[in-house]
Write a protein that binds this DNA or RNA. Structure first.
Lengths: 305, 305
DNA sequence: TCACGGATGAAAGATATTTTCGGCTCGGCG
DNA sequence: CGCCGAGCCGAAAATATCTTTCATCCGTGA
């Protein structure tokens, strides 16, 4: 590496194309990895796209009480080449919000909310999570992951806690279309099995925090043994991505005391996993379709008349 | 008037606010009064807002075979203070056009759909499922179920297959707020345990079809032993409801070959289960809040630095 | 308490935009 | 047919804006 590094970030290696409308989601996703000043900038930008799009670098720096450099750094982190492009995206976002679809903010769920409100708020939040996830998902990465999985000899999926259920969900579905898939929630067994993987196999790690050791470890082993590795995480800059060939980013919604983060991250993870599954089913349609039909048939007998 | 006039136009006297989306119209209106070079610029801008918004003054000048000065003049004529602002408006317009054309998300997922469409369609379908579920959920029944669960000595949850994961999800969350909950996916063990239930306990069966024998059986046993029983099902008229004190209906979305019913029923079930959980957490807030906090704390140590 | 690493902003450096200014074309008129 | 003036046009200077560099400062952990 002879090139001088400048002060370049880029949201990981794969800052694909900048985001048009997925900006608010991206801010939430990346906020945890931001410094305080950058968070101020990101917040201002997310809260008032229209207003900020009218400001120059200097203006926005003043408004957020930071410096031009920080503003540019934030723009870079969000995946834009510079402030100019962030500003353009901001204008686009503002125009979209203007024209009807305003993702306005909902209020938190309170302890004394009537049950009907709880239902409405939860449903709305999860819908929002889905929209954000879909908007923020890198279809290139997804496509690559799909290709790898569709041709894999064997697929191992790692996840613990809430993500473990998602791992199982994915596994169940993959098995149903005739692939060889296994979910591991026991870290020891996961590592033990990861050793068996080799080129042509696929390992998928699911972790919201991106820093769950129990999940990273088996992925690392799989990675080092030549398997194609995929990380499904809410923190595309987390440690888990070190060992991931392909990164699928889940979106993070704000959480509250009564609405644990696990809830929205699970929704987001499931959507990603569904997309992965459908993609694989498309690629392997010849074998997937009859396998699916067969599994329906088999299930029918488990139902009472 | 001492001020030097510069080269200022302004679209007549009333260049009110710049145009947001009425730009194409404005171009047509003003075209006759434009000089040849300016018309070229205006045309380019009207035909390809997205493309032009990516260009600098110099770029657009080159593209239209004119000069920077002409581009700026055109921007002025269109009512903007300068090219910079025209460009911003262009970006907004592009974003609107982009979001305007809603992809054919109403159609089923086809084998040859590009991956981006798959993502969009899945997200849309799941959003729809959430909306349907929220709309169709009987808050009275939900409230009753919440009351029962909040005061229960013990909560057993039955589910097999995909519903088994939902059962586990619910259990995980209930445990996290200090309740005693257990998910059963083994039908034999489920029945064996159901025998232990009595009045004051709660049994919850989760089955999309409403006719899964492996889940109905333990619910029946629980019911007959005096436990309060809840059914979460997509078929409120199915056999499972015979033994259910409270029925929570999940919604069913259309399915297709590539999109198994399990997908939307799972989404729906999870929303119901989330509502149930939040409801219970509200009722038991005094104990739930510290328990949740404690579980966060405990998890923090499982993360790599 | 000290040293370290990274965050931060002031200011220099690079680009983009705006303005100036003179050439040029075109039409009218002698 | 040639001259004249009006105003379009673009090259380049002037200015604004954005980007990078680099020294300082703050928080953190030993």
């Amino acid at each position: 590496m002879t090139q001088e590094v400048k002060e370049s970030f880029g949201s990981g290696p794969g800052g694909p194309p900048p985001a048009p409308a997925a900006l608010a989601a991206k801010v939430r996703t990346l906020a945890p990895s931001m410094t305080r000043s950058m968070q101020r900038v990101a917040e201002a930008v997310a809260n008032d796209p229209a207003g900020c799009s009218a400001l120059t670098v200097t203006g926005l720096a003043e408004r957020t009480g930071t410096s031009e450099a920080t503003v540019v750094r934030t723009a870079r982190l969000l995946g834009y080449p510079g402030y100019r492009d962030l500003r353009l995206a901001l204008a686009g976002l503002a125009a979209q919000q203007q024209s009807g679809r305003a993702p306005a903010i909902t209020t938190d769920i309170a302890v004394d909310d009537p049950i009907a409100d709880v239902v409405a708020k939860l449903a709305y939040d999860e819908q929002q999570t889905l929209a954000d996830t879909a908007a923020g998902l890198d279809t290139g990465q997804l496509g690559a992951a799909v290709s790898a999985a569709a041709g894999a000899r064997r697929i191992d999926v790692y996840g613990v806690g809430a993500s473990g259920l998602v791992a199982q969900d994915l596994t169940q579905k993959l098995l149903r279309i005739g692939l060889i898939a296994q979910a591991h929630s026991d870290p020891h067994l996961a590592v033990t099995n990861a050793v068996q993987l080799r080129a042509g196999d696929v390992a998928i790690a699911i972790t919201h925090s991106g820093s769950t050791g129990d999940v990273i470890e088996p992925l690392r082993v799989a990675f080092e043994h030549g398997a194609t590795t995929v990380a499904i995480t809410g923190r595309p800059d987390g440690p888990v991505t070190q060992y991931a060939d392909h990164i699928l980013t889940t979106s993070t919604a704000r959480e509250s005391e009564l609405r644990p983060a696990a809830m929205s991250s699970r929704t987001s993870q499931l959507l990603v996993v569904d997309c992965l599954f459908v993609g694989v089913a498309q690629r392997t349609y010849e074998t997937a379709a009859p396998a699916l039909a067969a599994s329906y048939e088999a299930l029918a007998h488990r139902h009472r008349r």
